[in-house]
Design a protein around this nucleic acid. Structure first.
Lengths: 203, 203
DNA sequence: TTCTAATGTAAACAAACGTTTACTTGCTGC
DNA sequence: GCAGCAAGTAAACGTTTGTTTACATTAGAA
């Protein structure tokens, strides 16, 4: 018991955290995002998410009602394209390509948001939830930004390209794209993406 | 009971099948391919595969040793790019695009082979198996066919594009690409794929 | 300081999973 | 015709899953 007094006031930021529903909620959401990105909707367990947030599974259910609802709040409502749209139009293709080609370690310390989407897209339950989110928060805004009659199809192809690259590189880790250096992959993919952005309409 | 006698001699082609290990094996493999394509490696259950093949789960394990081994024999050793490589080089992009854009109903009656790959790629156990299969049966042969110093990267991008399209269309069923007609999608994607095939090398 | 509502936990639930064991059924070579 | 082995099944095993129930603890207002 004495050891508790000797330890610093806020040691590993989890063990001695005072009871605080708001902080706990955030901790659970962060743990869930990481777990869903690493393992997908099905494989990620409520007990494991709870443990890595420093609580128990029962509390997670108490706060979010169900695993499905936790997924919605942690992942579906949490990826967006709007940040990438800032900047000159002629280089949007490059920004998008860099967005998916950067190593996980470079992605702001956390795992790539697209990973959670991709790793969970195969579960029918999660896919139904993601369907809405992808249209509302990625394809929709991107299409509106692009403009023109083919905007939706163009945005869809961009999403498909980014997801495909993420799939082959981060999930399947196919040798061809996993070991190649980022700049070379960028040289291939950025023009393609820019082509979807600025290419001519199909009659 | 009388109804059985009235029914034709070989009714649903399953109930009255005589004992035949070879036929049963094939039936299990077919059922497994469909189940893995529809639900992915984890969600597809051995009991369900067995039932749809007209046998019990114990027999499936007896024949294939484990669910993992069943997956290898049903899916991993069963997708290949070689068929698409026949024909003129200038139209390979179009053939590849058609390969993934055709509706499931047009894909020879069965589900698209890429679906099983994609829906199972998120399971770490299955992904490890698919990693080898994708390189050995798709990217490898395609790269050898393409030739040139960048062949592997080009093949990787082609695989990524096809997987991405399949993901957005068949799994996420995003409105933008799900409702658009095949010919328009073909007009967008075929040139991109052909670009990966014939485009200039990156210095 | 005391009391109560909020915060959290331990333990168990029912269902589903892949797999194993022991058993029954039926085709086939002698 | 009949043994023997292959083909197939029923039932259970041990885990793991998301979720529920009943209980403990602590923070904060009175």
């Amino acid at each position: 018991m004495v050891y508790w007094i000797i330890l610093p006031a806020d040691p590993p930021s989890d063990t001695s955290r005072p009871r605080n529903a708001a902080h706990t909620r955030v901790a659970i959401l962060n743990a869930a995002r990481t777990a869903f990105a690493r393992q997908g909707f099905e494989a990620a367990g409520v007990r494991e998410i709870a443990a890595s947030a420093g609580v128990t599974a029962a509390l997670v259910i108490r706060y979010f009602g169900s695993k499905e609802n936790l997924f919605v709040q942690a992942v579906v409502q949490n990826f967006s394209v709007v940040g990438l749209l800032e900047g000159e139009r002629a280089r949007l293709g490059e920004r998008l390509a860099r967005y998916v080609l950067q190593k996980e370690s470079e992605a702001g310390g956390s795992l790539h948001p697209l990973l959670a989407l991709l790793r969970s897209a195969t579960n029918e339950q999660a896919a139904a939830l993601l369907r809405t989110g992808l249209d509302a928060q990625f394809i929709g805004p991107l299409a509106a930004w692009l403009g023109g009659p083919e905007a939706e199809v163009r945005a869809g192809f961009i999403a498909a390209t980014l997801l495909g690259l993420t799939a082959v590189r981060s999930v399947l880790q196919s040798r061809a794209l996993f070991t190649a250096d980022t700049e070379r992959l960028l040289a291939f993919s950025a023009p393609v993406l820019q082509g979807y952005i600025d290419g001519p309409d199909i009659s």
